[in-house]
Amino acid sequence: MKKLLCFLFALTLMLSSCIEIIDDLSMNLDGSGTFKYTVNLSASKVKVNSILALDSFNGKKVPKIDEIESKINQFRELLKNEKGIKSVQTEFNKIDFIAKISVDFSSLDELQTGIKSVLTQLDPSIKYTEDYTVWIAWDHKSLQRMIPKLVEERIKTETQSDQELLTTGSYTCISRLPKTIQNSSNPACKLNPSKTAAMLRINTWDLKLNPSLLEHTLTLSP
């Protein structure tokens, strides 16, 4: 499992130039909501397929596509058992390499604790500190968002220097709220006409240079 996780990290790292991530959160008034996370590697499918055809890559064993699918399913089944988590759905497009997860949760704390718990079960050798798995904060008046530390660290260690390629990847953060948004702390954050949703899109190159670009707090109208 550890090898598989390492490989998947190495893979997403190598392809962060062409990776598209959508981090989509819908909140209800009572603090419950739906979280969707999408990773799209279709722009690099030749490269992903080439790696999958190998036995090992950068000294790590390359898993078979079925093994990756089975681990995604394992993640889903483990997450289902976590407190406050409902309706876990996963989807894996083996042709275009798009992985999606959708989760209903009772509270953001339970969502983040649940994800941390599953990651630890999948690889007990890694000890995740609090800041690794907390990237959303909600106090019914405002929603604070940032890049998950786990992803941030991976992007920072990216050594690829081809700026042109890196700018084609993106991280999109979408927040849908139960009340209108009064204020956004990040001017790059785009609000929809009804001011109930916000979207912030940063390319991989900028994010590598400055991970705080993704940080924003949305303050709700009283």
Binding site: E20, I22, D24, T38, N40, S42, A43, S44, K45, V46, K47, N93, D96, I98, T172, I174, R176, N192, P193, S194, A197, A198, M199
Partner: peptide, 25 residues
């Protein structure tokens, strides 16, 4: 030339969908 999936966004709701476009690798 290859094909890739990109996401398009509804500017009103920020809902998104997939479409196939041309890519280069």
């Amino acid at each position: 030339k290859t094909r890739k999936i990109t996401f398009f966004y509804d500017e009103e709701t920020f809902e998104y969908g997939e479409k196939e476009t041309e890519a280069e690798e």
